[in-house]
Each structure stands twice: as C-alpha cells, then as structure tokens.
C-alpha cells in the first residue's frame, strides 16, 4: 500500500502540492486526473522518490521512499518525458535496465517487444513518439514491479496500442497482484481501466473514490407527477442536482439505488425512469456537491477524451 500524508511540495514561490493525503491499496489500478499543472506529475515524482517533499511523508509498504533502494526496488516508472541512453537501441536499454533492476525479465522483454512489433536493434532515436512510449512501457512491464507508475502514458499511443497497453497493465495487476498508478488529464482515458479515481486540482486532492461505488451510489432519475411538485417534495432523498422542465424533473440522487427507487415509487409518479450516469457526469455532480466546478477543475478534459 502507498500512503501519503500531508505531502507539500513547492518550487520557489509556487506550491505544486499542498497537503496531499491519500492511500492507494495494493492490487488496484489507481487513476489520477487533473488539468495541466494540477500537480499530477509532481505527485508521481514524489511517490517515486525523485523529489523530496518539503513536508509530509510518503511510504510504500511502510517503507519511506526517499533514498531507500528497498522501497524503490518495488516500482517501475514511465514518466511523461522519457529517457533513453544517447544513441541507444532497445536491446541496449534492456541491458541497461537489467543492470539497474534486479527483477528485470529479459524473456518478458523479448516477448513484449515482439508483441508490439518493434525492432529491438533499431536506434530508439529513429522511433516515433508513440513507439518510444511503447519502448518505455515494455521496459517498465519487464521489471515485474509491485508498483507501476504511468504518467500520461497513453498520450501519443494509437487506439490499438492503448488497448494493448491497458490489457497488459490489467494482466499484470490480476496475475501478479501488481498496483498501477496512472495519471491523465482525460477522465475518459481512465474510465474503463481504473478501480479507483482521484482528482487533483491546484495541488490538492479534491476527490477520491472507488469507481464501482461511484456508479452505483449516484444515479439520475426522470420523474413526473399528476400534481404540482417542487424540490422540497424530495427532502427525504439526498439530491446532488434538481432541474424541472414543465412537469418533468431530472434529479441526480446519491444513495442506495433500490431503497431510493422504492421510496420514489411510493410517491406514485406517472413517470419514473432511472438512467445511468457517465463517469464524467458522476464527477461533475460530485464535484459540484463539494463546491467545485468540474469544467474548471478538468479543463480540456472533454476535448482530449
């Protein structure tokens, strides 16, 4: 498990992270979304011991990460800005990784290289941006790490490769009980992959939840009555949002779905439709309930999806 407590990181006058506290359980795929400059990359660099927090603590399996080879041995990291040795090819990089990581699996590296249809003898410099990212992912996955950190990893990958990479990450999580922490500025990118999602905004973790739980406890209802009704008619129900057009009201409800539906049915509506919410809608309403505007927090999220 990864635990962070009140992590603060500043760069000169700019506070990149301001008291972030979170827990990432083992064996899950943890997604972190946030707009550009929200602090996602800084957070990952802190989790991987690249940066030292100004204050607060970061532990991986109860081991402090800073300057601790035992803790650092547990993860592999694919950053947003990739690093390869100058003038290198994939074989040399594999050689390099095997010198650094005890658990680097050369067989898996060869298998993955073949799966991605990359030429391991060709200079990495001649590869496209997406191919370079594939190389970094292959190297990271070949390390058999307990924790894998991916920073904006799907950027530059075509849909086929995205699915392949997502599949491989899931495979590692299921088969090896690995934990993956993935950041993205696109919510939709992570929607179908993560077990847990968090939202980072202006250096703070504004929202964190289990996706399955989010989708089952938040739902949309279209309801109409023969008589006049208002928002106050539903005071016994936890509503995140209420709008009424004519005689039909749209309500976003948070709570146990069967119990709430039964409660609504008992009010004898002429129309009662229960509609599923997209993850983006869930986020929008949850954020609104916390006093944030989702559009502000995740600007460009829709465009990039």
């Amino acid at each position: 498990m990864i635990k962070t407590e009140n992590v603060v990181k500043t760069f000169d006058d700019f506070t990149a992270l301001n008291g972030v506290t979170c827990q990432i359980p083992k064996g899950c795929i943890y997604g972190m979304v946030g707009s550009n400059g929200a602090g996602k990359s800084t957070f990952l660099r802190l989790l991987t011991g690249i940066y030292k927090p100004d204050s607060g603590s970061i532990m991986i399996d109860d081991l402090p990460i800073w300057e601790n080879p035992a803790a650092k041995e547990k993860y592999s990291f694919v950053p947003d800005e990739l690093y390869f040795l100058p003038g290198t090819n994939m074989n040399r990089m594999a050689d390099f990784y095997s010198a650094i990581y005890d658990r680097f699996d050369l067989e898996r590296f060869r298998y993955l290289t073949e799966s991605f249809k990359l030429n391991p003898k060709k200079s990495v410099n001649t590869f496209s941006k997406g191919m370079k990212r594939q190389v970094a992912i292959i190297l990271a996955l070949s390390c058999h790490s307990e924790y894998m950190f991916f920073d904006e990893t799907f950027d530059g990958l075509d849909p086929v490769m995205r699915n392949l990479v997502k599949g491989l990450i899931c495979e590692d999580v299921i088969e090896n009980k690995a934990t993956a922490i993935i950041t993205s500025h696109s919510l939709r990118e992570l929607e179908d992959l993560c077990d847990q999602l968090s939202l980072l905004h202006k250096g703070g973790l504004v929202f964190e939840s289990d996706i399955a739980n989010l989708k089952t406890t938040l739902f949309k209802v279209q309801i109409a009555f023969t008589h006049e009704f208002s928002k106050e008619s539903f005071n016994s129900i936890e509503m995140l949002h209420f709008t009424k057009n004519g005689s039909v009201a749209n309500i976003i409800i948070k709570g146990d779905k069967p119990v709430t539906i039964a409660q609504l049915k008992s009010m004898n509506p002429v129309l009662l439709d229960v509609l599923p919410l997209t993850l983006e809608e869930v986020f929008t309403y949850e954020m609104a309930a916390l006093g944030y505007s989702f559009e502000d927090v995740l600007e460009g999220g829709k465009d990039n999806a």
Binding site: P69, K72, P79, L82
Partner: peptide
C-alpha cells in the same frame, strides 16, 4: 544526466542511493 530533466529524473528514480 544531471543537465536534463528526463535523465535526471530517471537516475533519481533508480533503486540506488545517490552516493551509490
């Protein structure tokens, strides 16, 4: 590697102490 961000980050993330 100390002069560019990506390489510096890489070497600071490897499972060795800085003195090592």
């Amino acid at each position: 590697f100390l002069t560019s961000r990506n390489s510096s980050d890489f070497y600071h993330s490897v499972p060795y102490t800085r003195p090592c």
